[in-house]
Amino acid sequence: MTPFIAKLIERSCVTTHADCPLDDLIVVLAERRIGTVVVVDRDHQVIGIVSERDIIRHLSNGGTTADTLTKNIMTSKVITVENNVTSAQLMQLMTEHRIRHVPITRDGKLVGIVSIGDVVKRLLEKYEQEAELIKQFINS
């Protein structure tokens, strides 16, 4: 496991259950200032993911938040990664599938989540480190 992934796993990952009312889920997104919540079962297995895009799609198709459950709008075919993934692999996966959040699993159970912002930040850190090493080499 890379230090990058280890750091992501240390922070909390907001989850919900499939029968959570959509109104409650929206409150969680707003209060936590996040764009995605992972849907897990009792064994902490990933069974879905709900993003702001899913909610907007539901509303734009005439749906309402009243009496709607998370399972009715969640994306069920979730792309996940194991905890040995690299930032370069994540960038490729997110770009290829046009997704902004990927749950991290270990032995099939949710252990964290990575966002496109996390990946961009990590890549910028790597470029800054490389630039500094090049400067040091040139000045030596």
Rank of each mutant, 00 (worst) to 15 (best):
P21I: 02
P21G: 05
L22N: 11
L22T: 07
L22D: 07
D23I: 11
D23S: 13
D24T: 10
D24P: 05
L25K: 05
L25M: 08
L25S: 05
I26V: 06
V27R: 11
V27W: 03
V28L: 12
V28N: 11
V28R: 02
V28T: 13
V28P: 08
L29G: 06
L29Y: 04
L29A: 09
L29F: 05
L29R: 04
A30Y: 14
A30G: 12
A30M: 13
E31D: 12
R32S: 04
R32A: 02
R32Y: 00
R33T: 00
R33H: 08
I34E: 00
I34G: 00
I34W: 00
G35K: 00
G35M: 00
G35C: 01
G35H: 01
T36V: 14
T36R: 06
T36Y: 09
T36Q: 10
T36N: 08
T36L: 08
V37Q: 06
V37G: 04
V37P: 01
V37I: 08
V37S: 03
V38I: 14
V38N: 07
V38S: 03
V38G: 10
V38L: 07
V39K: 09
V39F: 08
V40L: 03
V40H: 01
V40T: 12
D41C: 05
D41Q: 09
D41G: 03
R42P: 12
R42C: 11
R42D: 14
R42E: 14
D43C: 06
D43K: 06
D43P: 09
H44I: 15
H44C: 15
Q45M: 15
V46L: 05
V46S: 03
I47C: 04
I47R: 07
I47D: 05
G48N: 08
G48H: 09
I49D: 02
I49T: 13
I49M: 08
I49H: 06
V50H: 07
V50W: 03
V50T: 11
V50F: 04
V50L: 10
V50S: 09
V50E: 10
S51A: 13
S51W: 07
S51C: 12
E52G: 04
E52V: 03
E52R: 03
E52C: 01
E52L: 02
E52A: 07
